[in-house]
Amino acid sequence: MNIFRFAGDMMHLTSILVLLLKIYATKSCSGISLKTQELYALVFLARYLDLFTDFISVYNTIMKLVFIVSSTAIVWCMKRDRVVRRSYDKQLDTFRHYFLLAASFALALLVNEKFTFQEIFWAFSIYLEAVAILPQLVLLQRSGNVDNLTGQYVFFLGAYRAFYILNWIYRYFTETHFSRWIACISGLVQTALYADFFYYYYISWKNNTKLKLPA
């Protein structure tokens, strides 16, 4: 564990806590893409198949459980909670995320560390996570002004993988035989997708104006 990875995990956890706060405090999920939340739930379920077979550390196990439980709870809440689901922007959240699923799985079959069930699902979860934010970014562009908690949610979600890139650079220089090309390249793509959001987020913070993504 290094400071970059720990900071990244804490930002990831913060993004989830901000999203839970927004949904439970405002009893609303307006501006949140259910499709992105479904993709994230799949990412964690596909990546943590080794949850009960490989024990890495208490921290690792607890964080995996937190990510799985929180992501599935958010999807359940947006679909089933009578009050919350009324505020879901169903007509705006129309990104065809099944293509992202199919493409990620197809790529995982072609590019993986080893052609085994667990490695294919691990690579699938890495590729899927890189593109899972797309429905959310499209929804933000369509829904005009973005409320503060939603903006902070997306910001921390983008920042966490940027810290993981620093973590991989650090490990590359401090550990022998460290090579994690699939995660590195996918992480670069993932962070790059946030580039324009980060720009408009910075502008809104500098000018102290409401965050607005151009359509």
Binding site: R5, D9, H12, D50, D54, I56, N60, M63, K64, F67, E113, Q118, W122, Y164, N167, A183
Partner: peptide
């Protein structure tokens, strides 16, 4: 084991 080393990140 190799697998453990491999997936030690979240």
């Amino acid at each position: 084991s190799e697998v453990k080393k491999h997936h030690d990140e979240l």
